[in-house]
Every structure is written in C-alpha cells, then in structure tokens.
C-alpha cells in the first residue's frame, strides 16, 4: 500500500515537471519576440491579426498575437460592430477542441499563478468560497460583452473596461517591461497604473496562498472556455469498475472538483493531477471527435448528472 502511494507521488511529481515545461513552451510561443523587451517596442507583424488561445496582453513587447479578451473589447468598442463574430468564432473553435485544457496547459497567466503557488508557504482551500467563481461570468457578460457597447464616448467608441480596470496581465507583461525600457511610457504612468499594479500585487499574494485565484474568480476567458468543457474533444473519463472511491482525486484537485461526480465540470482545467494521483488508474483522458460506445462503467454524458445517469445509478 505504501509503495503504491510512493509510486503515485512519483508519477505526479514527474508529470508536474512535464506540464511545467509544456506551459513554459506555450508561454514562449505566445511571446516569441523576446528582443523587443530590450527595445521597448511591440511586434507589429501580420500574426497580430490572430488571437492566441490564452490570456496574453497584446501590448507585451514579445507578444506573438492578439489577446482574445482585449481584441473582443476593441472590436465591440468600435462604432461599426456590436458583437465580434471573428473572436467568438476563434474562441468557440479553441473551446470545442480543448475546453479549459487551455487554462491548464496553454495560458501564460495560468502558468504564472502555478509558479507562484509553488512558493513554499501555508496553503488555503477555496472550497468555502465557491460562490466567488460566478464573478467571472459577470465579468465576461457585463464587463467584456456589455459595457464597451453601451458606455461609449460621443464618437461612439467604447473603452476596454476589463483591460483598463481589472486585467493584471497588462501591467505584468506590458506596463512593467515597457516602462522599464521606454522613458516616454515611464513618464506617462499615473493613478491608473497604481490601481492596476495594486490588483496585480493582490493577485500575486492570493496566488501564493490559494490555487489560481484569478482563473477561479475573475478570468473572463476561463469563464468562456468553461462553457465548452461539456462538449470539448479533450476530456477525462472515470472507469467506475476500477474506481475504489478513495477520494484522492478530489483531494489533490486545486480547482475543487470531484471528478468522480462530474468529468466535464466547468471548473476543471484538465491539469491531469487527479489522473496521476489515482492509485488504480481509473481516470484517463482522451482527445477525439467521436465518443467511444459507452459501456456499463462509463456514461456517455461523463457523469454530468443527467436523467440517464440517475436511472443507471439506481
């Protein structure tokens, strides 16, 4: 029993390192123009027509593409458009392929929070404040979707409210490096920068104490992708014949998800910690368009609590 425990811990440790490298590679690909950090300028090439899947400020000197949240607000904030089909299409495509796997593996700000959480201090659970997770949906629909459309200046232009007042990534990736390398930008910093720097500092401190507070409570991109966890091609499965209900998967989950109850939970970022922690290898993942024929051990709806599941479980 003890050797089994050591084995799963070893497996988790190795996997965490592997996942860290994938996150680092994704962050590098999302910010490929590293020399721009020293020049104090941003990349202006044609790839900026396309949005990256994760939360990555397009004002970061090294940014390869556009930030989907910033880009959406830019389009709907212009007098010509009230909704951005282009960004919604791109995000829907990413969502159907991977769901919140993007948060777990490809988002640079997610990786940043993961690194902060590795700082050895006392860690706190967020199970008692689960209600806060709904804040991110308000941010998605109201702050990102609605405010730039309804609060416009006399020429019909709306502000990118999320980027301006909430997003800590803009200060981390754009504000700080640009103000270090560019004296003109440094001279223009004012109260707004102080506000955003304070938000960034709060997110940093909270990320050390709690697992991914920004992803859980504030990120509109995570909120959007969470809507696709139920249909995404990348997903987890629980083999009920192998599962011994030890509960280890639920205990190791930083996002407070019990995968035994729901394998397509909106909060699941598909980080794979539960899969590696499982002592009986009952948890697996797949990436496919067509679901395999469901057997007795696994329901086709992934245990999301439908009437069919309840009938079967009776």
């Amino acid at each position: 029993m003890k050797s089994k425990q050591i084995n799963t811990d070893k497996k988790r440790g190795k996997f965490r390192i592997k996942r860290g490298w994938i996150q680092a590679a994704a962050t590098l690909l999302t910010n490929i123009h590293l020399p721009n950090f020293f020049k104090g300028v941003i990349y202006r090439g044609p790839v900026k027509h396309i949005c990256v899947p994760g939360l990555n400020c397009y004002s970061c000197p090294a940014a390869t593409g556009a930030c989907p949240v910033g880009a959406y607000q830019a389009v709907v904030g212009s007098p010509k458009h009230r909704i951005s089909f282009y960004i919604l299409g791109l995000l829907t495509f990413f969502g159907v392929l991977a769901g919140r796997f993007i948060c777990g593996f490809l988002c640079p700000f997610g990786w940043f929070q993961d690194l902060l959480h590795r700082i050895p201090t006392k860690k706190f659970s967020t199970r008692k404040v689960k209600a806060l997770r709904y804040v991110k949906y308000v941010i998605l629909f109201v702050v990102v979707g609605l405010l730039p459309v309804i609060l416009t200046n006399p020429s019909g232009m709306g502000s990118p409210f999320f980027c301006k007042y909430i997003c800590p990534q803009g200060v981390l990736e754009g504000g700080i490096p640009l103000s270090i390398a560019n004296s003109g930008i440094r001279a223009a910093l004012g109260p707004l920068f102080s506000l955003k720097a304070a938000i960034l500092a709060a997110v940093v401190v909270l990320s050390i104490l709690f697992y991914r507070p920004f992803c859980k409570w504030l990120c509109p991109l995570g909120a959007f992708y969470s809507l696709f966890n139920r249909v995404s091609m990348y997903r987890f499965h629980v083999d009920r014949d192998k599962c011994v209900n030890c509960g280890k998967c639920a205990r190791v989950c930083g996002m407070d998800v019990d995968i035994r109850d729901n394998q397509v939970h909106p909060e699941c970022i598909r980080c794979g910690e539960c899969e590696k922690a499982c002592p009986t290898s009952a948890i697996s993942h797949s990436f496919r368009l067509f679901e395999k024929r469901a057997d007795k051990a696994e329901s086709p709806c992934a245990g999301a609590g439908c009437a069919g599941c309840h009938e079967r479980d009776k």
Partner: peptide, 30 residues
C-alpha cells in the same frame, strides 16, 4: 468556422490587427 469567416469579411480581423499593433495605453495602465 462560419463566424471566423463572417467576422473576417466584416473587417473585424483588421480591427483586431489595428488595435494589436499599437501599444494599448489603457491595458498597461495609462
């Protein structure tokens, strides 16, 4: 795919590009 094509034909991709190649002052705190 249909949304991406429709959006691109509507000039949204160009709108994204125009925003993304300039430093977004609000985003960085100015």
């Amino acid at each position: 795919v249909a949304f991406v094509i429709l959006g691109a034909l509507n000039g949204e991709a160009l709108e994204v590009f125009k925003k993304a190649v300039r430093i977004c002052l609000e985003c960085i705190g100015i």
